[in-house]
Amino acid sequence: MRVLFGATPNDEVSDDDLTTLYASEASAAKPWMRCNMVSTVDGSATGAAGDSGSINNDADGRVFHTLRALADVIVVGAGTAKAERYGPTDRPIVLVSRKAQVPESLRDAPAGSVYLATCSRSDGVDSAREILGEEHVLTLGSHRVDLPLLKKELAERGWVNQLCEGGPHLLRDLVFQGCVDELTATTVPQLVGGINGRITEGAPIQTELDLTLLLEDHGTLLGRWRVKN
């Protein structure tokens, strides 16, 4: 792995280097939400198996694990957590679901390791509280999840380094509502065709980005993009 842009050129980027290169600007006064996504050269966010695991590779995996190690909390859409078969991690996971759905793979997670952000009008709130515990279900908004309030709520719990791992609808909504500070995007050297979705889905948005770092590893490009909020 080598640095192409944004730092001193280096053809041998170590794991310690990655930790430095991906350090965030989070502070108690300024929570930092980073969204991490992967796609192919032809824009697909998934491969033949219908998940990102069928397109990511070792280079993407190195950055993925670096970002998780730097994070205080992992935010992910419940649908993505289900499709990607999420299990408990050493960081708290916050599921975002308007329907208050908890994927099967996380229902038996240790108490306090999984939270759910949902809305008060959801029919699934009572069931989610039974599964996760009432104190771990955050009702933020009435008809849809109030994402800026979620970012603030997580920061008030001391989770200022916030890592969102998708999916595409959640990323789009987070950007639209002004919550995202940074996008880390991996482009893998594959073409997959088909009608697979992109890393953002939903109503059109137009948001400019500034490239702050670009790495390369055997054709895989790994970038840090600051969102111009």
Rank of each mutant, 00 (worst) to 15 (best):
V73P: 01
Q101W: 09
C119R: 12
Q190F: 08
V94K: 02
H136R: 14
K99S: 15
G87I: 04
A128N: 07
T200D: 10
R121K: 15
P204A: 09
Y115K: 15
A111S: 12
T80E: 00
N196G: 15
R91P: 01
I74S: 00
D181M: 06
S120K: 12
S142G: 09
C164F: 06
F176H: 15
A117D: 08
A78T: 04
R172V: 07
G202F: 13
L70N: 04
G194M: 12
K151W: 10
P189F: 09
H136P: 08
T207A: 15
D72R: 01
V137N: 09
Q101M: 11
P110K: 05
A78Y: 01
L116M: 05
S105C: 04
F64C: 06
E135T: 12
I199K: 03
T118V: 10
L150C: 01
L154H: 10
S142L: 09
I195D: 15
K152N: 13
R107T: 09
V175G: 04
H136M: 06
T200K: 11
A100G: 04
L132E: 09
T66S: 09
G197C: 07
G133Q: 03
E182K: 08
G166M: 09
I74L: 03
R68D: 04
P148A: 08
L67Q: 05
E134S: 14
V192W: 02
V63W: 04
G194T: 11
V96H: 04
V125W: 00
R107G: 07
Q190C: 13
S97Y: 02
E84K: 02
L132G: 12
C179W: 05
D90N: 07
R157C: 08
V188E: 07
Y115F: 14
A69Q: 09
L147H: 05
C179G: 07
G166W: 12
A203I: 13
R144D: 14
A78K: 03
K151C: 14
L106W: 03
D90V: 02
T66H: 04
D126P: 04
I195R: 15
K99A: 13
T184D: 14
L106M: 05
R107A: 06
E135D: 13
A185I: 14
E130T: 13
A109I: 10
Q190D: 12
Y86Q: 01
V114D: 03
C179A: 09
L150Y: 05
A203E: 15
A155I: 11
V125K: 06
G112H: 10
P148K: 06
E135Y: 04
V125S: 03
K82Y: 00
R198Q: 14
G178I: 06
N161G: 03
G158T: 09
H136N: 14
D123H: 12
R121H: 15
A78V: 04
R198T: 15
E134L: 01
R107P: 01
E201P: 11
V75Y: 00
T186M: 10
C119A: 14
F64N: 05
L183W: 06
L95P: 02
D126Y: 08
G166R: 13
R98C: 03
D72P: 00
D108E: 14
V125I: 05
